[in-house]
Write a protein that binds this DNA or RNA. Structure first.
Length: 588
RNA sequence: GCGCCUGUAGCUCAGCCGGAUAGAGCAACGGACUUCUAAUCCGUAGGCCGGGGGUUCGAAUCCCUCCAGGCGCGCCA
């Protein structure tokens, strides 16, 4: 039985008792968990009955409890002030719950809320002039997690990336390379391609300080690029190729996967037709200076100081595009090419206004899917010194951070393996999973709307509310399961009636809640919610583990029952971590 | 001027579509490894839930207002 079924059974038992006591049906009651496990397995507050029954909730609870004649699986109904606490028979509660969890298997947590819906999740949006940094990793962690959460709720998700591969900033690194690199390549420099190109972007900024002639040279290069100059295009392709090779390595390491790749060089001219069409249909207007503008509705956008409605320009008088022009075009292209029902954009909160405008415009243009589009907005990642400044080079480089975390994990693993029994390759494999998992969890554990104050000392910790803590709980369970298999303990002989101590009950509660937490995390676009739940589940397991023996339990039936309980726990931890984009380890 | 976000323990954060004494991690202090992995667990200490009003049987949660911080507000991306 799943949580909803238990709640239904509890409600039915209370309804029966209510009819016995008052000869009428209760309405508006909801079953939840009591604040302490000792009180019971489920709790129902009687406040909603106070008004219709014209009686105090405590009195109602007392009378219902007195009139109750519990039938299995309900063992007892007790009043506690205005609450009714319901105890279930452990054999049924644990047995049927664990059976349902195991039956779900790798589909545990899946639901059908989004069945049949196709949604594109666009995330990362890197520039090809410099390597990825910590901010990108928050974006990626969110993109990966939301992709999996939407898949778990039945959506067909198409992960996509839009690469900003053109513009002045790209030309800056090109110009610097052209002038100062002397033909160097990533291979000759022994650098990852994206880092190599990034050095020339930095070099440009340094040189431009000294030589004011570089700025016009960059502008000229951009014009030649737009004119299709073969020499410039060749350089552009070569350097972007280096960057993509470097990016691919980071994508792979961090677990990013894109089914569709959009290049801004291919999308930046999109949107003009739609704007022209919209202008003809009166969706847009021309302002006094010849800009094509969209008048924003007052409802969410407010008004200007002078009381006039706010506007957004969608096309310049000379017909050249703006950021939003191509975004309109790209949004439509996505939907037509992939038959989408909606689009999700994982982009920082500084662009909230932009996306509000974009969605409002798409809706005004008459696209029915516009209302379903969503900007998954997230806060800044601050360094101890302040906001990350890419031009000053004061960023946490993504590759450096990953490598640093993996190395720390490797040290920790070696510390636990003083005899050196583990092969270097195995240490590396585990360290990779732990290090990357630690970063992802650290970036996902707070709500997207919150800004993150990146604390290097705290971020490298594997204690407490962290990914490795959750992975460790899984590994501990796996160790027990392995030993149980060696000893041939059969879970079929489980005596679930022996379960029910506070630690076991609390653990079961977390397992039962898992599917609803997944559904809620997806619906709220909040992986943090799931991260909290996975951590709480791991904690509940560790508390159980420290107090009770599984293999050495008093009876074989109890050992088997506990084995079934922790096997279900392992399943929840694995599924939960996977949905967050983390992997589990069978040994740590 | 307007819009959005944030304000909860020393620090970082949950809880925010109202319900049992406001939770967790870190840091501090004190304990627990001949027993299934101590990357663990237990205990102690730490809170006018930014301030003030209101709605309600009941408010961290909803409404109003003020304060503080952040992001943004047509012709940048």
């Amino acid at each position: 039985m799943i949580l909803a079924e238990w709640k239904e059974a509890v409600f039915a038992a209370i309804a029966r008792a209510c009819r016995a006591a008052f000869h009428r049906d209760p309405e508006g009651l909801e079953a939840g968990f009591p604040p302490e496990v000792g009180l019971g397995d489920f709790a129902v507050a009687c406040f909603p009955l106070a008004r219709p029954f014209r009686m105090s909730p405590a009195e109602i609870a007392a009378r219902i409890a007195a009139a109750a004649s519990p039938e299995p699986p309900v063992a007892a109904i007790r009043a506690a002030g205005p609450y009714l606490n319901v105890a279930l028979q452990p054999a049924a509660f644990f047995g049927a719950s664990i059976a349902a969890l195991r039956a779900a298997g790798d589909r545990l947590g899946n639901s059908a809320a989004g069945a049949g819906r196709r949604v594109m999740v666009e995330y990362l949006s890197p520039n090809t002039n410099k390597p990825l940094h910590l901010g990108h990793l928050r974006n990626a962690a969110l993109g990966i997690a939301i992709t999996r959460l939407l898949e778990a709720t039945g959506h067909r998700v198409i992960p996509a990336i839009l690469i900003n591969d053109r513009g002045v900033h790209i030309c800056k690194s090109m110009l610097a390379w052209q002038r100062f690199a002397g033909g160097a390549t990533p291979a000759s420099a022994g650098m990852k391609g994206d880092h190599f190109v990034g050095t020339w972007y930095v070099r440009y900024a340094i040189e431009a300080e000294k030589d004011p002639s570089l700025e016009p040279a960059v502008q000229e290069m951009l014009q030649r690029w737009e004119a299709g100059d073969p020499e410039i295009l060749a350089l552009w392709k070569t350097m972007n190729g280096w960057v993509y090779e470097g990016f691919a390595e980071t994508y792979r390491r961090f677990g990013m996967r894109f089914e569709v790749v959009y290049y801004e060089s291919e999308t930046y001219k999109l949107g003009k037709d739609v704007i022209a069409d919209g202008l003809a249909r009166g969706v847009f207007t021309r302002d006094e200076r010849g800009n094509t503008v969209f008048v924003l509705p007052e409802k969410p956008f407010g008004r200007e100081k002078d009381g006039s409605p706010k506007r957004v320009t969608v096309l310049r008088p000379d017909g050249t595009s703006l950021y939003i022009t191509q975004d309109i075009g790209t949004a439509i292209r996505k939907v037509t090419e992939h038959a989408l029902d909606s689009s999700v954009y994982v982009v920082g909160s500084e662009q909230e206004h932009h996306f509000q405008c974009l969605f409002a415009i798409l809706e005004a243009l008459g696209f029915p899917w516009a209302r379903a589009c969503r900007h998954l907005s997230y806060g800044m990642v601050y360094l101890p010194e302040g906001k990350m400044k890419s031009r000053e080079g004061k960023v946490v480089d993504a590759d450096d951070l990953i490598e640093g975390m993996v190395e720390l994990a490797a040290e920790e693993i070696r510390r636990r393996d003083p005899e050196g029994r583990l092969a270097a390759e195995e240490i590396r494999r585990r360290a990779e999973t732990i290090g990357v998992g630690a970063i992802k969890f650290y970036l996902l554990r707070v709500r997207p709307a919150q800004s993150i104050h990146f604390d290097p000392a705290e971020s490298i910790s594997f204690d407490g509310f962290t990914g490795p803590y959750c992975q460790y709980a899984y590994a501990r369970i796996f160790g027990i399961l392995e030993k149980a298999a060696e000893r041939g303990i059969a879970e079929e002989s489980a005596d679930f009636g022996r379960l029910g101590n506070p630690e076991e009950t609390l653990l079961l509660r977390h397992l039962l809640q898992f599917p609803e937490e997944v559904a809620a995390a997806a619906a709220e676009f909040s992986p943090a919610r799931l991260a909290v739940h996975v951590f709480n589940t791991a904690r509940a397991f560790n508390q159980f583990y420290n107090r009770h023996a599984v293999l050495q339990a008093e009876t074989a039936g109890l050992a088997a029952a506990r084995l079934a309980l922790i096997r279900a726990t392992a399943l929840v931890l694995k599924r939960g971590l996977e949905l967050l984009g983390l992997e589990v380890l069978e040994n740590m």
